[in-house]
Design a protein around this nucleic acid. Structure first.
Lengths: 122, 122
DNA sequence: TTCTTATGCATAATAAACTTATGTATTAAT
DNA sequence: ATTAATACATAAGTTTATTATGCATAAGAA
């Protein structure tokens, strides 16, 4: 291994508020039917124009956890002599996706209410 | 102590995305000039109509940390024979408030972009 | 052809930021 | 008289991320 610093460009980081990652994964799979881990990191980067960077150290354990909870199914494939683990939502996963998306929407609405309060409650 | 279960009504919880609390505190002090801890928990509850409940176990350590970082100043007062620790923003705290609010706005914008992508990037 | 970057997975150590569960103490309400 | 509200605090444990590695193949640049 001749790796020196493989993390050079960490770009003033992307502040992932803890708790969002699971929702992000579920949302991706809700749209794409099936995806593999690396693909998710690239897609998130593309959609958010580089503002959100999912680290692999967070992503893979999160995927394993979701699988263990029965929210995801896995299917391993070999492409170009490299492994890919394709994940897709189970039925349980679909339900959880709905509630997680609802939860995020509520959170955003709440925080916006908080940031721009309509009436002062002093 | 005759305390049995003081946490009974935990109300389907309030999902505070980790990382938001500091921003919330700074925003409160940015508007109210000076506040004490318990007052913050009540105000947040009121503004968000009970959707956000700051727990004391999170709040007080957070306040101590912000003070240690020089973002807050403290002034202890005795009201009705009970202590109150009034916090207010320092100059450094004012600057941090601006950047934290900016950061939250960016996060919300990014997540909205992610939830409602304008163009499909498949 | 050799080095680097990109693709693709994984995990251990650490840190941050919470929740949960307590503890103390005074005042107000039932 | 007991409970609820006000007001602080902290320790233990959990969750969830970052940082730092590790392995392996393929593609591209030097």
């Amino acid at each position: 291994m001749h790796k020196k610093i493989m993390y050079v460009c960490n770009m003033a980081n992307s502040k992932l508020y803890k708790g969002s990652l699971t929702t992000i994964i579920l949302k991706l799979l809700n749209e794409s039917e099936k995806m593999y881990g690396y693909e998710m990191t690239q897609k998130v980067k593309a959609i958010t124009k580089g503002e959100l960077n999912i680290t692999e150290g967070a992503l893979y354990p999160a995927l394993h956890k979701l699988e263990a909870e029965g929210l995801l199914d896995v299917e391993v494939k070999k492409v170009d002599n490299r492994l890919r683990k394709y994940y897709k939502l189970t039925e349980k996963g679909n339900k959880e996706t709905v509630s997680k998306l609802e939860e995020l929407k509520d959170y955003i609405k709440t925080m916006e209410t908080f940031m721009n309060p309509k009436l002062s409650l002093d």
